[in-house]
Nucleic acid binder design. Structure first.
Length: 467
DNA sequence: CCTGGAGTTGTCCTA
DNA sequence: TTAGGACAACTCCAG
């Protein structure tokens, strides 16, 4: 019987996983492994990863072996020690992982080990999404229409009893990683109230979304006070559920809600394509004229933003939701992003870094592509004069301020008329609601009109100097 | 190569 | 109160 390493990466599941399906089809036995690269992970993600690996290990009868270190060396040693003849993994699309895969391929060749490489984390391979002239798309709509409209999504199920696990004498189980992944700071413990990492939790989340969130998604997705978003992002990021299965579960895409949700999956694809074709998406503005943009990098502003103390309740609610739950509603991500980059004129890298460290769904492709979009540095970014007004957005998308009251309870007694912008509420209203600006809730740290104007001026300066 | 139409998610002012 | 246009040009994409 052939012995196969399955190198788990961002595909921490058994169902709808091509490495597993083909392993069973080949009738090979498996040595399942995971190799940690803790430097590339944010603090919140690490806690999720630990839980997710723990669940996967259970599904593999506690035979998942974990390692910390250089993937190439580790795999080489395993090939030698266990007379491995096959290796299988699912592709990743960031530069570092691509390099790593190449080195592992070289090792496989050296030992005459057969490779089985799949893509179980995107609906399409980036190489197959190119324009007719062979270059990658830079605009979402044609990328979507020409590649994904009418695409079939196959789902398949695995009989886990068919997986033959190699006996592994080395005593390297999941506990090895606990010290690397679980921080001393215990803020993450409250995440348990909101999330169930692992394949089973992912399946439950999908069913719940299909039952309760999908109807009305097209409109409701913009409302942080409603429950229309899927919250599948951390599950999808770690591959606890496959995007193919998610797409497949929609059935025929025959209404606006399904179509809208499907395009969000394709936005994820688009971000991964941007990263794949622009490996330095994290450091390089897609529009290089922004390289000379006069970002302020004001430490006090950044601190107020991170801690949810800007004096704009929708922004503060979002930042506190992030800290409290490891997640932020999509609409609110745009609002806080625009606020940091435009009203505070702070570099998008700082926002990206904070999100990477605190989001459970932190994903280098989505994170960098989205921050580039909101900062206006992206290839297809919004025109620069599109600056979100956090008060207007709040009134529009959290009309009854239920979201604000949930995460910024100290201003909860303010009436709906004033709760979106306490700094402009009459003194008597503030007094009656127990709000003391600067004491128990901050005064707004910037004037919206002035900071908007400041951003617009900075952008128009940029235009002059670059032409 | 040329050309015309189009581009995730807004805001503000004016009539 | 509300609807429509201005905001600016530029790049992308497909025929």
């Amino acid at each position: 019987m052939e012995k196969c390493i399955i190198w788990f990466r961002n595909d921490l599941r058994l169902q709808n996983n091509l490495t597993i399906k083909n392993l069973i089809d080949r009738n090979s036995s498996v040595l399942p492994i995971y190799i940690l690269d803790s430097n590339s992970l944010g603090s919140a993600s690490k806690t999720w990863l630990y839980r997710s690996l723990y669940e996967l290990d259970k599904q593999l009868k506690n035979q998942l072996k974990v390692y910390d270190g250089n993937a190439v060396n580790i795999i080489e040693r395993l090939i030698e020690n266990y007379q491995i003849t096959q290796i299988s993994w699912n592709r990743k699309f960031d530069y570092k992982s691509i390099q790593e895969e190449q080195l592992v391929k070289n090792i496989a060749k050296k030992y005459n080990v057969r490779e089985f490489i799949y893509n179980s984390s995107l609906l399409m391979n980036p190489e197959d999404t190119l324009k007719k002239d062979g270059t990658p798309y830079r605009v979402f709509t044609p990328f979507y229409k020409n590649n994904y409209l009418g695409l079939n999504h196959n789902a398949f199920s695995i009989n886990t009893n068919d997986i033959i696990i190699l006996e592994n004498k080395e005593d390297k189980n999941i506990d090895l990683l606990k010290d690397h992944l679980i921080p001393e700071h215990t803020w993450y413990e409250k995440f348990d109230r909101y999330w169930e990492p692992g394949e089973i939790g992912a399946q439950k989340r999908l069913r719940e979304f299909l039952d309760k969130g999908l109807l009305g998604y097209a409109e409701g997705r913009n409302r942080p006070d409603l429950d229309n978003v899927s919250r599948l992002s951390p599950h999808i990021h770690f591959g606890e559920i496959s995007p193919n299965e998610v797409a497949n579960s929609l059935g025929d895409i025959d209404n606006e809600d399904k179509e809208r949700f499907y395009t969000e999956l394709v936005w994820r694809e688009f971000s991964h394509n941007l990263l794949f074709f622009n490996p330095k998406l994290d450091t390089t503005n897609l529009q290089d004229k922004f390289n000379s943009f006069p970002w302020l990098k004001n430490k006090a502003y950044l601190d107020a933003w991170q801690t949810g103390n800007t004096g704009y309740p929708i922004v503060d609610a979002g930042m506190r939701e992030l800290w409290e739950t490891g997640y932020m509603h999509n609409r609110v991500r745009m609002i806080v992003g625009s606020f940091l980059v435009k009203n505070l004129l702070h570099h998008w890298h700082s926002g990206r870094d904070w999100f990477k460290d605190t989001l459970l769904d932190a994903d280098d492709a989505n994170n960098n592509a989205s921050w580039q979009w909101v900062a206006g540095t992206g290839a297809d970014a919004a025109p620069y004069f599109r600056i979100f007004n956090p008060v207007t957005q709040s009134q529009k998308f959290d009309p009854n301020a239920e979201y604000i009251r949930k995460f910024v309870p100290e201003i909860g007694d303010l009436p709906n008329t004033y709760i979106h912008d306490p700094s402009n509420a009459p003194k008597t209203v503030l007094d009656n609601s127990g709000v003391k600006l600067g004491k128990n809730y901050p005064s707004s740290i910037v004037n919206l009109k002035e900071s908007r104007q400041r951003a617009l001026s900075a952008f128009s300066e940029l235009k002059k100097t670059s032409s």
